[in-house]
Amino acid sequence: MGFKLLSKLLVYLTASIMAIASPLAFSVDSSGEYPTVSEIPVGEVRLYQIADGVWSHIATQSFDGAVYPSNGLIVRDGDELLLIDTAWGAKNTAALLAEIEKQIGLPVTRAVSTHFHDDRVGGVDVLRAAGVATYASPSTRRLAEVEGNEIPTHSLEGLSSSGDAVRFGPVELFYPGAAHSTDNLIVYVPSASVLYGGCAIYELSRTSAGNVADADLAEWPTSIERIQQHYPEAQFVIPGHGLPGGLDLLKHTTNVVKAHTNRSVVE
């Protein structure tokens, strides 16, 4: 069995187990497998329904001669939608809004960016022009300005110390501490036991640490421990890039980060 097929099978099995364990909360999309990078042309966006009122959005972007996937989250909030992270750029984010209108038909009224990198804030200006209120932590807003990236308009308070959590509509926002970046936030959907790890969490097929220019490698494993301790009931975990899975993604990420750190020390 090929690795790609095995990865998709694991996603399907995880979703099936969740649907059985929580039949009222989960209505997993039966329309197909989780979209992969090879299936999404740059400039297009796919939506994948995880649970009743919960979707991931998947886009792709060219970077350094390669094409990478990027995940975000959409959560229903009454007759409105909360968006977590842009679709990595203005063109993708405009396509995301169009796809949401086509498939869901509810307005996106608020959006949260989970850290300051372009795959999370690139497209904020498109959201703002569409009347979406954009939010991020003060740290993310400051770092985005320093980096020359787009800056969300509103500040999220109460997320300055490791372990801080605040309720934001249908989700809980959690600051686990520094990891992929010093400002990275985690998003949890309690009604569906869905954990969105953003770039602080890796997919299972990833074996290298990737972009760690703004990471705190020493603190990252401790931050992941905080996530595990705060959300032990999480059933569906979405990484910032690639295929979702279960809580095993947290341990896998820790292993990859520690291996990278150990290699760096040896070198």
Rank of each mutant, 00 (worst) to 15 (best):
M1S: 03
M1I: 03
G2Q: 08
G2I: 14
F3N: 15
L9S: 10
L10G: 08
Y12D: 14
A15M: 06
S16P: 05
S16L: 09
M18T: 04
S22F: 04
S22C: 11
S22R: 07
P23L: 05
L24N: 09
A25I: 10
A25F: 15
F26V: 11
F26W: 06
S27T: 08
V28F: 14
V28R: 09
V28P: 05
D29T: 08
D29S: 08
S30N: 07
G32L: 15
G32F: 05
Y34P: 07
Y34N: 04
Y34V: 08
S38E: 10
S38N: 09
I40M: 08
I40C: 11
P41R: 07
P41S: 08
V42N: 13
Y48T: 08
Q49A: 09
A51F: 07
A51R: 05
G53M: 09
V54M: 12
W55E: 00
S56H: 04
S56A: 07
H57V: 06
A59Q: 15
A59I: 07
Q61N: 08
F63L: 05
G65I: 10
A66D: 06
Y68M: 09
I74Q: 01
I74S: 03
I74K: 01
I74L: 07
V75H: 03
V75A: 06
D77I: 07
D77A: 05
D77E: 06
L83F: 03
D85M: 00
T86I: 03
T86E: 01
G89K: 14
A90T: 06
K91Q: 13
N92S: 14
A98Y: 06
I100P: 00
E101K: 08
K102F: 03
K102C: 11
G105A: 08
V108M: 11
T109E: 12
T109M: 11
R110A: 14
T114D: 00
H115E: 00
F116N: 06
H117F: 00
D119R: 00
R120D: 05
G122T: 10
L127V: 13
A129V: 11
A129R: 07
G131T: 10
V132E: 01
A133Y: 15
S137I: 12
S137N: 15
S139V: 09
S139Q: 13
R141W: 04
R141D: 02
A144Y: 03
V146T: 12
G148N: 13
G148H: 09
N149T: 05
I151L: 11
H154N: 06
L156M: 12
L156R: 02
L159V: 13
S162D: 13
G163K: 14
D164P: 13
V166S: 07
V166W: 11
P170M: 04
V171T: 15
E172S: 12
L173H: 03
F174R: 06
P176R: 02
G177P: 00
A178C: 03
A178F: 07
T182C: 04
T182G: 10
L185Q: 02
I186L: 10
Y188K: 01
P190Q: 05
S191D: 14
A192L: 07
S193I: 05
Y196A: 13
G198R: 02
G198Q: 03
G198E: 02
I201N: 02
Y202R: 10
E203C: 03
S205L: 12
A213F: 05
D214N: 06
D216N: 13
W220D: 01
W220S: 00
P221T: 13
T222A: 11
S223E: 02
R226C: 03
I227D: 02
Q228A: 11
H230D: 13
P232A: 09
E233W: 09
E233M: 10
A234K: 03
A234F: 15
Q235N: 05
V237F: 14
V237P: 00
V237K: 01
P239N: 01
P239F: 00
G240P: 01
L243W: 11
L243E: 08
D248Y: 07
D248L: 12
L249I: 08
L249Q: 02
H252K: 12
V257H: 14
V257S: 05
V257K: 01
K258Y: 04
H260A: 10
H260D: 11
N262H: 05
S264C: 04
V265E: 14
V265W: 11
V265Y: 06
